[in-house]
Design a binder for these strands. Structure first.
Lengths: 195, 195
DNA sequence: GTCTATAGCGAGATAGAC
DNA sequence: GTCTATCTCGCTATAGAC
């Protein structure tokens, strides 16, 4: 029989992380107090330290989990036929994944400077790995003559920035559905790489 | 005869703003203390309050000045012949302007959430005005049949995000000069709008 | 596992000497 | 115009009761 004495206790950890994610995204890591997080969860501030050694670790956990999810979902994408199909899959995946986790995306970009050097290096390595995946698609497409682009590395930076930018303006229930947005951005991406 | 008694005093205001700009960009508004700013300038914390009523006003001044500079330099761009030339001018202007003020750009984007509602609204209005300028170029080009793009508004968002992204990776003395980067991005922009 | 209480610190802002 | 000194507040993190 599974332990069940206090079911609410067993989900306090995830609830703390969820509250921290929301608050860090809205106000910024430095501006959020542990008391605020505790209040959001419905516990006292001291209780948080049963789940995290300190505030910095809480931030790092959120960012690390986010980047690990990103890389593992990317790896789970079905194999595409050629560079053009792979680029379309990447484009649609990037928009959907980032849109679904706008708080984590915002934190992973904005709070890098609040990480201690060692933690920063770990997150950066994962980010570079993600960029390298796209750069690989672009380089292969260029070699195969499918894409026409001057510099795969810069193109990867440019496309990722462009696609992530959807998060700054897209709102549920607006003029366009996310599927429609995907189509429009995919058309711009396809043209930008000369395909 | 101009007042000259204490020349260092006359430049304390600008030095405070410069120090705040640097520190806010590197550590974030909430993480920077007035004492830190004062130390950077070489005065005591209390002296800062001769130049700003409080910390929030200091942040708002920096952001407002930045946006005003952006809009006035944009307005000072020479008239371009057609939409294609106007788009190229905008592209190169955006990259150069933002690259030259990366601290202010970072703050203007990241610290929006630390502004009081009224201040936020003022900065947002200026940002929308800048976006509208690009959207106008794109809409005119689309109507004239020079550009082929599905949605001028989304294209404006996408291109601005893409161009601003240069700031996240470009470093002086790297593989490419800024002029070279401009050329590469301009080629991607031109293709993306189907010109 | 959560609470109350608090230690220890540093923050923003102000008062008054010079 | 700048300094020193200080008020008041809120913060992170910990101790110990339950």
């Amino acid at each position: 029989m599974a332990r069940k004495k206090n079911s609410s206790a067993e989900i306090t950890g995830p609830r703390i992380r969820a509250a921290a994610l929301r608050l860090f995204a809205r106000q910024g890591y430095a501006a959020v107090s542990m008391r605020q997080i505790a209040q959001e969860v419905g516990v006292q501030a001291g209780a948080l330290y049963l789940y995290t050694p300190d505030k910095q670790s809480l931030l790092f956990d959120l960012m690390q989990t986010h980047m690990q999810d990103l890389l593992s979902e990317l790896a789970a994408l079905p194999e595409a036929g050629g560079p053009l199909a792979a680029l379309e899959d990447f484009t649609r995946f990037h928009i959907r994944f980032h849109r679904a986790r706008s708080d984590a995306v915002f934190i992973a970009y904005m709070e890098l400077r609040n990480l201690e050097p060692e933690n920063f290096a770990r997150i950066e390595a994962m980010r570079r790995s993600y960029e390298a995946y796209l750069e690989g698609i672009l380089a292969r497409g260029k070699e195969a003559g499918v894409f026409s682009l001057p510099d795969p590395k810069l193109a990867a930076f440019a496309l990722i920035a462009m696609l992530t930018g959807v998060n700054t303006w897209y709102r549920e229930g607006g003029r366009l559905s996310l599927g429609h947005v995907e189509n429009i951005y995919w058309e711009m991406v396809r043209k930008a790489v000369g395909a």
